[in-house]
Design a protein around this nucleic acid. Structure first.
Lengths: 274, 274
DNA sequence: AGTTGACTTTGCCCTTAGGGTAAGGTGTTT
DNA sequence: AAACACCTTACCCTAAGGGCAAAGTCAACT
């Protein structure tokens, strides 16, 4: 039997960590002296501890590790595989987010070197008042958490396009998203993916036209929050109020764009004079 | 002037967050009613708030953002650039770490599908007792934090190789690392990078030979911690004790390896019978 | 047997970036 | 004046431990 200090040195984990793992039931000492409370570990526990470290290096949380260890008892390598696959997808997404940040930061640096302040694009956001025409849209409405927006857009728009292709419907515009949640909530937003088409089928509905505050963004989607802010500011300043759900129209295909400025997005706020 | 709720809606940030940012001095309301304590924001603060959000999306901590905002006052785009560049490098490192995890996990899944348990490599770690010969090594000794090990190895070994090349010294072996810190400390370890050579010059020293417990790892460096654990276990079990700093010899060049099993690393624990 | 020093125990406070909730005060509308 | 929306502070919570302190325990040395 090894004292906590000895076991700690062998597996390269601090005693504090071992005590914490004992507390949360991740790995308990083989034996505890009931009089003194001293923890004693068996060398057979080394393997488990090293396994925990390995899972930690894969960015599993201790809670996830605990779950894996519990199902590990019944030697089911399938569940372990699926846990690994889930984590791979999760890490892949974070990786994508990091790469996106890197691109954005590099872009900012290029601009700064040209003497363009980072937030200068804000002054170029123009708001105009327009009258929109009603549209017939093929739609899918979904609760979307902010995590799966990137994957979600791909998924739902490709489903809609598939439907248009298989049912030989007539495209009348580019894809759009309508945000029905009154306020932005990272946990989940009532989001409608839509594409205007000519035919009226079961999954279409009418998107009424009317007075709208409109802004056009030529740049990365990450600047959309600023566009929304500017629109809200304008609506407030000019004495209007938002009367229906705002929506975005993706005029260009982001996959075709070589520089962020090639991406064109229109944002509409249906408004009425207060 | 906007109440906290209005400002919150315009910039898409919760009131809770705005109060928190006020508390830590990141962005304070333009005006506070001294009687009621009500916070009032000016629309001119929108730009700052959106800038904060942008920096947050680049994974800056609020502390870092605060520092950037403070130096932003004197319009120095240089410092902002250098902060962005630092963050780019930081994110790049995390990205590398993620990619490494992804590779490892994929490897584990492949093994699992072949019926090989993840931790089975532990049973293949063999320890032998050997007598090493003294060596003459060209060395550089450095405190290394666990974050910059990856970059550090490249850096210091290439410096040593450069010296060997320019001074026309004679290589007698592959690179090695000697760990002088008695215990592993993530904050910083006293680490010696060394390459055995023939000539005795100012930056060489004698690495004494002697009795060693030795293990050979054929696999990824992330399994090294397990090798250390196994060595410590063996030393304990067989009644030896560690009497000098342990060291690793990198027999193969990891950049030449196509599969992790091609990477060969020897780990030595200089020991004496207790 | 006593002492010293190394080791271990529990307990408490600290970290990030806020979220949730409660009790009570304020502003606006009916 | 009441109702209701909005605002305030205050307190507790998160993950994965680190740091420190007071007190108990273990092994070795005198």
């Amino acid at each position: 039997m090894l004292s906590i200090g000895e076991f700690s040195k062998i597996c390269g984990v601090s005693t504090k960590t071992l005590r914490y793992y004992d507390e949360i039931g991740l790995i308990n000492p083989d034996e505890i002296n009931p009089e003194t409370g001293y923890r004693y570990y068996s060398i057979r526990q080394l393997k488990k501890m090293l396994f925990i470290n390995r899972l930690k290096s894969y960015h599993f949380s201790l809670e996830e590790i605990k779950a894996i260890l519990e199902l590990e008892d019944d030697q089911s390598s399938e569940k372990l595989c699926s846990a690994l696959n889930r984590k791979i997808r999760e890490i892949q997404e974070k990786l994508n987010a990091f790469e996106y940040s890197l691109k954005q930061m590099s872009n900012d640096i290029l601009n700064l070197e040209k003497g363009i302040p980072i937030m200068s694009y804000l002054d170029n956001i123009e708001v105009q008042l327009v009258e929109t025409q009603p549209m017939n849209i093929l739609y899918m409405r979904q609760m979307m958490s902010s995590d799966d927006y990137v994957a979600g857009y791909e998924k739902y728009f490709s489903r809609l396009y598939e439907k248009i292709a298989t049912e030989e419907l007539t495209l009348l515009g580019t894809p759009m998203t309508i945000y029905h949640s009154p306020e932005y909530n990272p946990a989940g937003n009532d989001t409608e993916f839509a594409i205007p088409i000519e035919e009226t089928v079961k999954e279409t509905r009418d998107l009424p036209g009317g007075l709208c505050a409109k802004s056009v963004l030529k740049g990365s989607y990450s600047e959309l929050t600023s566009v929304y802010a500017k629109l809200r500011e304008w609506v407030e300043n000019e004495g209007y109020e938002l009367v229906k759900s705002p929506y975005e129209v993706y005029v260009t295909d982001p996959n075709q764009a070589t520089v962020p400025e090639d991406i064109v997005t229109e944002v509409y706020f249906p408004v009425e004079k207060k």
